[in-house]
Amino acid sequence: MDTSRITQLLQAHASGDQNALDELIPLVYSEMHKIARGRLIGERPDHTFSATALVHEAYLKLVDFNRIDWQNRYHFFGMASQVMRNILVDYAVKRQVQKRGGKRNRVTLDEEHLKEEMSLDDIISVDHALQRLEKLDERQAKVVECRFFGGLTIEETANTLGMSEPTVSRDWKMARAWLNRELKNV
């Protein structure tokens, strides 16, 4: 995949070429897909589909945010991570409200099968903890957004945020340890 082409198109689009987006979308999509697949190898295998999900998400956002001024593809990744965070937290909050409203349906049944997964509460607590981290260390919080919500690799995160890989790696380790500790004590 020609990454420079993507960058080129993004720039063209940023400078007002609407047609560039039409060509861009499939390319970005395909690229994201590849990245996502590569990244998920080595994680739990049942993530196979979440690679796709992430890409869908990116795609969705691409379509919806087509007026956003794209700097480059990494800008796009950063955007996607942020959006993913919003979507997830939004979803978790809505579902929590629904649950408290006593609406029980098949969905709740499904959730019982997924005990090892992140829960709605977890998502909300992660978001809250991340907001606290933002106050302590904005850069680390950004790294978490990319890595945790966006699912980006160290390398992608580094490129997205304009940092060096070792720095991202250090930030991530610390932020992860800090957040996990915070969340454990809740």
Binding site: F49, S50, A53, D122, K184
Partner: peptide
């Protein structure tokens, strides 16, 4: 910890 749980379905 919490951050390391899978969240595919979610």
């Amino acid at each position: 910890g919490t951050l390391d749980q899978p969240m595919h379905n979610l």
